[in-house]
Simulated scan of single mutants.
Amino acid sequence: MLNGRDPRIDFFRGLALIFIFWDHVPHNPLGLITLRNFGFSDAAEVFVFLAGFASVLAYSKVMQREGYWIACLKILRRTWVLYVVHIFLLALLMGIVFYANNHVQTRDLVAEMGLTHFVTHPQQALTDELLLRFKPNLMDPLPLYIVLLAGLSVVLPLMVRATWAVIGVSLAVYLMAPWMGWNLRAIADGVWYFNPITWQLLFVLGGAAAIHSQRPTAPDTRPLPRQPLFVAAAIYLVVAGVITLSWLWPDIHDAVMPATLSNWLYPISKTDLSPVRLVHFLALAYVTAKLLPGRGWTQNRLAERVCQMGRYSLEVFCLGVVLAPLADMLNALANDAVAMQLLTALVGVVLMSALAAWMELNKRLNQASRAPGEPALPEQHAR
Protein backbone atom coordinates (compact mmCIF):
# COMPACT_ATOMS: atom_id res chain seq x y z
CA MET A 1 0.00 0.00 0.00
CA LEU A 2 1.31 3.46 -0.94
CA ASN A 3 0.44 6.39 1.35
CA GLY A 4 -2.63 4.54 2.60
CA ARG A 5 -3.75 3.62 -0.92
CA ASP A 6 -4.78 0.15 -1.96
CA PRO A 7 -2.65 -0.69 -5.02
CA ARG A 8 -5.37 -3.01 -6.33
CA ILE A 9 -7.70 -0.03 -6.77
CA ASP A 10 -4.99 1.87 -8.64
CA PHE A 11 -4.23 -1.17 -10.79
CA PHE A 12 -7.80 -1.66 -11.97
CA ARG A 13 -8.23 2.07 -12.57
CA GLY A 14 -5.09 2.01 -14.71
CA LEU A 15 -6.25 -1.10 -16.55
CA ALA A 16 -9.64 0.54 -17.21
CA LEU A 17 -7.88 3.56 -18.71
CA ILE A 18 -5.92 1.30 -21.06
CA PHE A 19 -9.10 -0.48 -22.11
CA ILE A 20 -10.93 2.82 -22.64
CA PHE A 21 -8.13 4.05 -24.90
CA TRP A 22 -8.10 0.84 -26.94
CA ASP A 23 -11.90 0.84 -27.22
CA HIS A 24 -11.83 4.44 -28.46
CA VAL A 25 -9.57 3.64 -31.43
CA PRO A 26 -11.70 2.19 -34.26
CA HIS A 27 -10.70 -1.23 -35.66
CA ASN A 28 -7.94 -1.60 -33.05
CA PRO A 29 -7.05 -5.32 -32.77
CA LEU A 30 -6.23 -4.96 -29.08
CA GLY A 31 -9.77 -3.75 -28.56
CA LEU A 32 -10.79 -7.38 -29.01
CA ILE A 33 -9.27 -8.29 -25.62
CA THR A 34 -10.93 -5.55 -23.58
CA LEU A 35 -13.64 -6.21 -21.03
CA ARG A 36 -16.58 -5.39 -23.32
CA ASN A 37 -15.88 -8.49 -25.43
CA PHE A 38 -16.32 -10.95 -22.54
CA GLY A 39 -19.43 -9.73 -20.76
CA PHE A 40 -22.21 -7.20 -20.63
CA SER A 41 -20.24 -4.46 -18.81
CA ASP A 42 -17.04 -2.73 -19.89
CA ALA A 43 -14.32 -0.40 -18.64
CA ALA A 44 -16.80 2.46 -18.10
CA GLU A 45 -18.36 0.59 -15.14
CA VAL A 46 -14.91 0.01 -13.66
CA PHE A 47 -14.05 3.69 -14.05
CA VAL A 48 -17.25 4.98 -12.38
CA PHE A 49 -17.29 2.44 -9.54
CA LEU A 50 -13.67 3.11 -8.61
CA ALA A 51 -14.19 6.86 -8.94
CA GLY A 52 -16.90 6.56 -6.30
CA PHE A 53 -14.67 4.33 -4.17
CA ALA A 54 -11.69 6.69 -4.27
CA SER A 55 -13.74 9.87 -3.82
CA VAL A 56 -15.70 8.69 -0.80
CA LEU A 57 -12.61 7.14 0.76
CA ALA A 58 -10.64 10.38 0.45
CA TYR A 59 -13.27 12.95 1.33
CA SER A 60 -14.82 10.98 4.19
CA LYS A 61 -11.41 11.15 5.87
CA VAL A 62 -11.31 14.90 5.23
CA MET A 63 -14.78 15.23 6.76
CA GLN A 64 -13.78 13.28 9.85
CA ARG A 65 -10.62 15.32 10.26
CA GLU A 66 -11.76 18.83 9.28
CA GLY A 67 -15.56 18.74 9.23
CA TYR A 68 -18.23 18.57 6.58
CA TRP A 69 -18.00 22.11 5.24
CA ILE A 70 -14.28 21.84 4.53
CA ALA A 71 -14.82 18.48 2.83
CA CYS A 72 -17.68 19.98 0.80
CA LEU A 73 -15.49 22.91 -0.23
CA LYS A 74 -12.71 20.60 -1.36
CA ILE A 75 -15.13 18.40 -3.31
CA LEU A 76 -16.51 21.44 -5.11
CA ARG A 77 -12.99 22.72 -5.77
CA ARG A 78 -12.10 19.40 -7.33
CA THR A 79 -15.32 19.51 -9.35
CA TRP A 80 -14.38 22.94 -10.68
CA VAL A 81 -10.95 21.63 -11.71
CA LEU A 82 -12.62 18.78 -13.61
CA TYR A 83 -14.99 21.24 -15.29
CA VAL A 84 -12.12 23.47 -16.46
CA VAL A 85 -10.19 20.42 -17.67
CA HIS A 86 -13.27 19.33 -19.62
CA ILE A 87 -13.51 22.69 -21.41
CA PHE A 88 -9.85 22.79 -22.39
CA LEU A 89 -9.78 19.10 -23.32
CA LEU A 90 -12.76 19.55 -25.62
CA ALA A 91 -11.10 22.51 -27.34
CA LEU A 92 -7.90 20.49 -27.79
CA LEU A 93 -9.81 17.46 -29.07
CA MET A 94 -11.64 19.57 -31.66
CA GLY A 95 -8.36 21.01 -32.90
CA ILE A 96 -6.84 17.55 -33.28
CA VAL A 97 -9.89 16.12 -35.06
CA PHE A 98 -10.14 19.02 -37.52
CA TYR A 99 -6.42 18.66 -38.25
CA ALA A 100 -6.76 14.90 -38.74
CA ASN A 101 -9.81 15.36 -40.95
CA ASN A 102 -7.74 17.45 -43.36
CA HIS A 103 -5.28 14.59 -43.81
CA VAL A 104 -7.67 11.62 -44.00
CA GLN A 105 -9.56 11.77 -47.28
CA THR A 106 -11.42 8.47 -47.02
CA ARG A 107 -13.46 9.27 -43.89
CA ASP A 108 -15.29 12.16 -42.28
CA LEU A 109 -13.67 12.18 -38.85
CA VAL A 110 -15.56 15.31 -37.80
CA ALA A 111 -18.89 13.52 -38.23
CA GLU A 112 -17.58 10.31 -36.66
CA MET A 113 -16.43 12.21 -33.57
CA GLY A 114 -19.76 14.00 -33.20
CA LEU A 115 -18.37 17.45 -33.95
CA THR A 116 -20.80 18.38 -36.73
CA HIS A 117 -22.80 20.51 -34.27
CA PHE A 118 -19.78 22.77 -33.79
CA VAL A 119 -19.35 23.17 -37.55
CA THR A 120 -23.00 23.96 -38.25
CA HIS A 121 -23.84 25.94 -35.08
CA PRO A 122 -20.55 27.20 -33.57
CA GLN A 123 -22.06 29.82 -31.26
CA GLN A 124 -24.69 27.47 -29.87
CA ALA A 125 -22.05 24.74 -29.56
CA LEU A 126 -19.93 26.97 -27.33
CA THR A 127 -22.90 27.58 -25.06
CA ASP A 128 -23.73 23.87 -25.02
CA GLU A 129 -20.11 23.11 -24.17
CA LEU A 130 -20.23 25.33 -21.09
CA LEU A 131 -23.51 23.70 -20.02
CA LEU A 132 -22.11 20.17 -20.55
CA ARG A 133 -24.67 19.51 -23.29
CA PHE A 134 -22.12 19.27 -26.13
CA LYS A 135 -20.16 16.08 -25.59
CA PRO A 136 -18.43 14.67 -28.67
CA ASN A 137 -17.40 11.03 -28.75
CA LEU A 138 -14.69 10.11 -26.20
CA MET A 139 -15.73 12.95 -23.87
CA ASP A 140 -18.75 11.38 -22.14
CA PRO A 141 -17.08 9.94 -18.99
CA LEU A 142 -15.69 13.27 -17.78
CA PRO A 143 -19.01 15.22 -17.65
CA LEU A 144 -20.55 12.22 -15.90
CA TYR A 145 -17.78 12.30 -13.29
CA ILE A 146 -18.26 16.06 -12.83
CA VAL A 147 -21.97 15.67 -12.06
CA LEU A 148 -21.48 12.67 -9.77
CA LEU A 149 -18.67 14.34 -7.81
CA ALA A 150 -20.72 17.51 -7.40
CA GLY A 151 -23.56 15.39 -6.02
CA LEU A 152 -21.18 13.81 -3.51
CA SER A 153 -20.81 17.18 -1.80
CA VAL A 154 -24.47 16.87 -0.74
CA VAL A 155 -24.75 13.18 0.18
CA LEU A 156 -21.32 12.55 1.75
CA PRO A 157 -22.49 12.85 5.40
CA LEU A 158 -25.37 10.46 4.73
CA MET A 159 -23.04 8.09 2.90
CA VAL A 160 -20.89 7.82 6.02
CA ARG A 161 -23.66 7.69 8.64
CA ALA A 162 -26.52 5.93 6.83
CA THR A 163 -24.93 4.02 3.97
CA TRP A 164 -27.78 1.59 3.42
CA ALA A 165 -30.36 4.38 3.34
CA VAL A 166 -28.40 6.16 0.61
CA ILE A 167 -28.11 2.91 -1.35
CA GLY A 168 -31.86 2.38 -1.04
CA VAL A 169 -32.70 5.86 -2.34
CA SER A 170 -30.10 5.55 -5.09
CA LEU A 171 -31.53 2.19 -6.16
CA ALA A 172 -35.07 3.59 -6.24
CA VAL A 173 -33.97 6.49 -8.44
CA TYR A 174 -32.07 4.08 -10.71
CA LEU A 175 -35.15 1.90 -11.19
CA MET A 176 -37.51 4.82 -11.77
CA ALA A 177 -35.31 6.79 -14.20
CA PRO A 178 -35.82 4.65 -17.35
CA TRP A 179 -39.53 4.26 -16.62
CA MET A 180 -40.01 8.01 -16.08
CA GLY A 181 -37.60 9.02 -18.87
CA TRP A 182 -35.30 10.92 -16.52
CA ASN A 183 -32.04 12.11 -18.07
CA LEU A 184 -30.13 15.35 -18.65
CA ARG A 185 -30.41 17.34 -21.87
CA ALA A 186 -27.81 17.12 -24.59
CA ILE A 187 -27.57 17.78 -28.31
CA ALA A 188 -28.10 15.13 -31.00
CA ASP A 189 -30.55 12.63 -29.50
CA GLY A 190 -31.38 15.05 -26.71
CA VAL A 191 -30.02 13.09 -23.73
CA TRP A 192 -26.69 12.22 -22.14
CA TYR A 193 -25.11 9.03 -23.45
CA PHE A 194 -24.17 8.16 -19.83
CA ASN A 195 -27.36 9.00 -17.94
CA PRO A 196 -26.13 10.37 -14.59
CA ILE A 197 -29.48 9.62 -12.96
CA THR A 198 -28.91 5.89 -13.44
CA TRP A 199 -25.11 5.73 -13.34
CA GLN A 200 -25.15 7.42 -9.94
CA LEU A 201 -26.05 4.03 -8.45
CA LEU A 202 -22.71 2.58 -9.48
CA PHE A 203 -20.89 5.61 -8.04
CA VAL A 204 -22.81 5.21 -4.77
CA LEU A 205 -22.05 1.49 -4.63
CA GLY A 206 -18.37 2.31 -5.09
CA GLY A 207 -18.56 4.75 -2.20
CA ALA A 208 -20.37 2.18 -0.06
CA ALA A 209 -17.63 -0.35 -0.83
CA ALA A 210 -15.04 2.18 0.32
CA ILE A 211 -16.85 2.68 3.62
CA HIS A 212 -17.25 -1.08 4.06
CA SER A 213 -13.54 -1.59 3.42
CA GLN A 214 -12.70 0.60 6.42
CA ARG A 215 -14.76 -1.51 8.82
CA PRO A 216 -13.45 -4.75 10.32
CA THR A 217 -15.24 -7.82 9.03
CA ALA A 218 -14.70 -11.51 9.61
CA PRO A 219 -13.42 -13.15 6.42
CA ASP A 220 -15.26 -16.11 4.95
CA THR A 221 -12.81 -18.98 5.42
CA ARG A 222 -14.81 -21.52 3.42
CA PRO A 223 -13.27 -22.67 0.12
CA LEU A 224 -14.57 -20.61 -2.80
CA PRO A 225 -16.56 -23.51 -4.37
CA ARG A 226 -18.53 -23.73 -1.12
CA GLN A 227 -19.47 -20.04 -1.06
CA PRO A 228 -22.91 -19.74 -2.74
CA LEU A 229 -22.56 -16.06 -3.68
CA PHE A 230 -19.19 -16.64 -5.33
CA VAL A 231 -20.52 -19.64 -7.28
CA ALA A 232 -23.60 -17.74 -8.44
CA ALA A 233 -21.49 -14.75 -9.52
CA ALA A 234 -19.02 -16.97 -11.37
CA ILE A 235 -21.82 -18.80 -13.21
CA TYR A 236 -23.36 -15.48 -14.25
CA LEU A 237 -20.01 -14.30 -15.61
CA VAL A 238 -19.58 -17.49 -17.63
CA VAL A 239 -23.09 -17.29 -19.11
CA ALA A 240 -22.66 -13.59 -19.94
CA GLY A 241 -19.28 -14.32 -21.52
CA VAL A 242 -20.72 -17.07 -23.72
CA ILE A 243 -23.59 -14.83 -24.87
CA THR A 244 -21.24 -11.93 -25.58
CA LEU A 245 -18.84 -14.09 -27.57
CA SER A 246 -21.76 -15.46 -29.57
CA TRP A 247 -22.36 -11.94 -30.91
CA LEU A 248 -19.33 -12.49 -33.13
CA TRP A 249 -21.39 -15.07 -35.05
CA PRO A 250 -24.91 -13.58 -35.40
CA ASP A 251 -26.35 -16.57 -37.26
CA ILE A 252 -25.29 -18.99 -34.53
CA HIS A 253 -26.45 -16.57 -31.84
CA ASP A 254 -29.91 -16.23 -33.39
CA ALA A 255 -30.18 -19.99 -33.82
CA VAL A 256 -29.33 -20.98 -30.24
CA MET A 257 -30.71 -18.02 -28.28
CA PRO A 258 -34.25 -18.73 -27.07
CA ALA A 259 -36.71 -16.08 -28.21
CA THR A 260 -38.02 -15.60 -24.67
CA LEU A 261 -34.55 -14.96 -23.31
CA SER A 262 -33.68 -12.70 -26.22
CA ASN A 263 -36.79 -10.57 -25.71
CA TRP A 264 -36.01 -10.24 -22.01
CA LEU A 265 -32.32 -9.53 -22.44
CA TYR A 266 -32.23 -7.05 -25.31
CA PRO A 267 -31.65 -4.21 -25.74
CA ILE A 268 -28.83 -3.93 -23.18
CA SER A 269 -28.82 -0.19 -22.57
CA LYS A 270 -25.53 1.45 -21.73
CA THR A 271 -27.18 4.87 -21.45
CA ASP A 272 -29.43 3.77 -18.57
CA LEU A 273 -26.98 1.19 -17.18
CA SER A 274 -29.13 -1.84 -17.92
CA PRO A 275 -29.58 -4.16 -14.90
CA VAL A 276 -27.76 -6.99 -16.68
CA ARG A 277 -24.76 -4.67 -17.15
CA LEU A 278 -24.89 -3.57 -13.52
CA VAL A 279 -25.18 -7.13 -12.19
CA HIS A 280 -22.41 -8.30 -14.52
CA PHE A 281 -20.01 -5.67 -13.20
CA LEU A 282 -20.90 -6.36 -9.57
CA ALA A 283 -20.38 -10.08 -10.15
CA LEU A 284 -17.06 -9.38 -11.85
CA ALA A 285 -15.91 -7.11 -9.01
CA TYR A 286 -16.93 -9.67 -6.38
CA VAL A 287 -15.25 -12.62 -8.10
CA THR A 288 -12.09 -10.59 -8.74
CA ALA A 289 -11.93 -9.49 -5.09
CA LYS A 290 -12.30 -13.10 -3.97
CA LEU A 291 -9.68 -14.43 -6.38
CA LEU A 292 -7.17 -11.64 -5.64
CA PRO A 293 -7.54 -10.96 -1.91
CA GLY A 294 -3.92 -9.95 -1.36
CA ARG A 295 -1.73 -7.20 -2.77
CA GLY A 296 1.44 -9.14 -3.54
CA TRP A 297 0.57 -9.57 -7.21
CA THR A 298 0.73 -5.77 -7.68
CA GLN A 299 4.42 -5.66 -6.76
CA ASN A 300 5.89 -6.73 -10.10
CA ARG A 301 7.25 -4.12 -12.51
CA LEU A 302 4.42 -4.25 -15.06
CA ALA A 303 1.67 -4.08 -12.45
CA GLU A 304 3.39 -1.14 -10.77
CA ARG A 305 3.34 0.78 -14.07
CA VAL A 306 -0.40 0.14 -14.38
CA CYS A 307 -0.93 1.17 -10.75
CA GLN A 308 0.97 4.38 -11.44
CA MET A 309 -1.42 5.17 -14.29
CA GLY A 310 -4.34 4.60 -11.94
CA ARG A 311 -2.94 7.04 -9.39
CA TYR A 312 -3.10 9.83 -12.00
CA SER A 313 -6.32 8.78 -13.66
CA LEU A 314 -7.48 12.28 -14.67
CA GLU A 315 -4.28 13.19 -16.48
CA VAL A 316 -3.94 9.76 -18.09
CA PHE A 317 -7.57 9.73 -19.20
CA CYS A 318 -7.17 13.15 -20.82
CA LEU A 319 -4.07 12.02 -22.66
CA GLY A 320 -5.90 8.91 -23.87
CA VAL A 321 -8.71 11.09 -25.25
CA VAL A 322 -6.14 13.15 -27.17
CA LEU A 323 -4.20 10.13 -28.43
CA ALA A 324 -7.23 8.17 -29.70
CA PRO A 325 -8.02 10.41 -32.73
CA LEU A 326 -4.30 10.73 -33.50
CA ALA A 327 -3.98 6.94 -33.53
CA ASP A 328 -7.08 6.70 -35.68
CA MET A 329 -5.59 9.20 -38.15
CA LEU A 330 -2.29 7.32 -38.40
CA ASN A 331 -4.13 4.02 -38.86
CA ALA A 332 -6.29 5.51 -41.64
CA LEU A 333 -3.24 6.95 -43.41
CA ALA A 334 -1.69 3.46 -43.30
CA ASN A 335 -4.89 1.96 -44.76
CA ASP A 336 -5.64 0.33 -41.40
CA ALA A 337 -2.68 -2.01 -41.64
CA VAL A 338 -2.66 -4.36 -38.65
CA ALA A 339 0.98 -3.57 -37.88
CA MET A 340 0.20 0.15 -37.64
CA GLN A 341 -2.90 -0.49 -35.55
CA LEU A 342 -0.88 -2.54 -33.08
CA LEU A 343 1.92 0.03 -33.05
CA THR A 344 -0.34 3.00 -32.31
CA ALA A 345 -2.21 1.04 -29.61
CA LEU A 346 1.00 0.06 -27.83
CA VAL A 347 2.74 3.42 -28.26
CA GLY A 348 -0.34 5.12 -26.86
CA VAL A 349 -0.16 3.02 -23.68
CA VAL A 350 3.57 3.72 -23.38
CA LEU A 351 2.91 7.46 -23.61
CA MET A 352 0.15 7.22 -21.01
CA SER A 353 2.51 5.32 -18.72
CA ALA A 354 5.25 7.89 -19.34
CA LEU A 355 2.89 10.69 -18.33
CA ALA A 356 2.05 8.88 -15.09
CA ALA A 357 5.77 8.39 -14.38
CA TRP A 358 6.37 12.10 -15.00
CA MET A 359 3.52 13.01 -12.64
CA GLU A 360 4.94 10.68 -10.00
CA LEU A 361 8.37 12.28 -10.33
CA ASN A 362 6.87 15.76 -9.96
CA LYS A 363 4.97 14.63 -6.87
CA ARG A 364 8.14 13.31 -5.26
CA LEU A 365 9.98 16.53 -6.05
CA ASN A 366 7.15 18.52 -4.46
CA GLN A 367 7.20 16.29 -1.40
CA ALA A 368 10.94 16.78 -1.09
CA SER A 369 10.51 20.56 -1.11
CA ARG A 370 7.47 20.57 1.23
CA ALA A 371 8.01 21.64 4.81
CA PRO A 372 8.26 18.72 7.28
CA GLY A 373 4.84 17.70 8.57
CA GLU A 374 2.92 19.59 5.89
CA PRO A 375 0.13 17.25 4.63
CA ALA A 376 -0.56 16.43 1.03
CA LEU A 377 -3.73 17.72 -0.61
CA PRO A 378 -6.64 15.25 -0.32
CA GLU A 379 -7.27 15.63 -4.04
CA GLN A 380 -4.03 13.76 -4.61
CA HIS A 381 -5.72 10.73 -3.04
CA ALA A 382 -9.03 11.18 -4.87
CA ARG A 383 -7.69 11.18 -8.40
Rank of each mutant, 00 (worst) to 15 (best):
Glu315Met: 03
Ser60Leu: 04
Pro325Phe: 05
Gln367Val: 01
Val191Arg: 11
Phe98Cys: 10
His117Met: 09
Phe134Gly: 11
Phe134Ser: 11
Leu126His: 11
Gly67Gln: 08
Tyr68Gly: 10
Ala376Ser: 15
Pro267Cys: 08
Trp247Gly: 06
Trp199Arg: 10
Ser274Lys: 04
Ala16Lys: 06
Asn101Thr: 05
Pro157Gln: 02
Leu149Gln: 15
Leu361Ala: 14
Thr298Asn: 05
Pro372Ser: 02
Trp69Val: 02
Ala165Pro: 03
Tyr59Ile: 07
Val85Arg: 12
Leu237Tyr: 05
Gly67Thr: 00
Leu32Asp: 15
Leu278Arg: 02
Ala371Gln: 14
Leu323Asp: 13
Phe12Asp: 10
Val84Lys: 11
Tyr59Asn: 08
Leu93Val: 07
Ala289Ile: 00
Tyr236Asn: 05
His86Thr: 05
Gly31Tyr: 01
Glu66Cys: 07
Val110Gly: 10
Leu171Phe: 14
Gln227Thr: 03
Tyr193Glu: 13
Leu333Met: 13
Ala91Gly: 07
Val191Leu: 07
Asn331Val: 01
Ile146Asp: 11
Gly310Ala: 09
Pro258Ser: 10
Asn362Lys: 12
Trp264Glu: 06
Thr221Pro: 00
Ala234Tyr: 06
Leu273Ala: 13
Cys318Trp: 00
Val84Pro: 00
Leu15Tyr: 03
Val231Ser: 06
Met352Asn: 03
Val350Ser: 11
Ser369Val: 04
Leu35Ser: 13
Gly206Ile: 01
Asp272Ala: 09
Gln123Glu: 15
Leu284His: 10
Leu92Ile: 12
Thr127Cys: 08
Ala165Asp: 01
Gln367Arg: 12
Pro143Ser: 11
Thr106Ile: 04
Gly52Gln: 04
Ala91Cys: 12
Ser213Met: 01
Asn183His: 08
Val256Gly: 09
Glu129Ile: 13
Met176Asn: 01
Lys270Cys: 06
Phe203Arg: 05
His24Gly: 11
Val279Ala: 15
Leu90Lys: 03
Glu360Asp: 11
Ile75His: 09
Phe194Cys: 10
Pro157Trp: 03
Gln308Trp: 00
Ile87Glu: 15
Thr298Gly: 08
Ile9Gly: 11
Lys363Leu: 13
Trp164Gln: 12
Ala356Pro: 09
Thr120Arg: 09
Arg13Pro: 08
Gly320Phe: 02
Val173Gly: 08
Arg295His: 11
Cys72Phe: 07
Asn195Ala: 08
Trp182Gln: 06
Met309Pro: 11
Ala283Gly: 10
Leu126Trp: 14
Leu202Phe: 01
Arg185Glu: 15
Ile252Asp: 05
Ile197Ala: 15
Gly14Gln: 08
Leu237Met: 13
Val62Ala: 07
Tyr236Trp: 13
Val84Thr: 13
Glu112Asn: 13
Gly114Val: 02
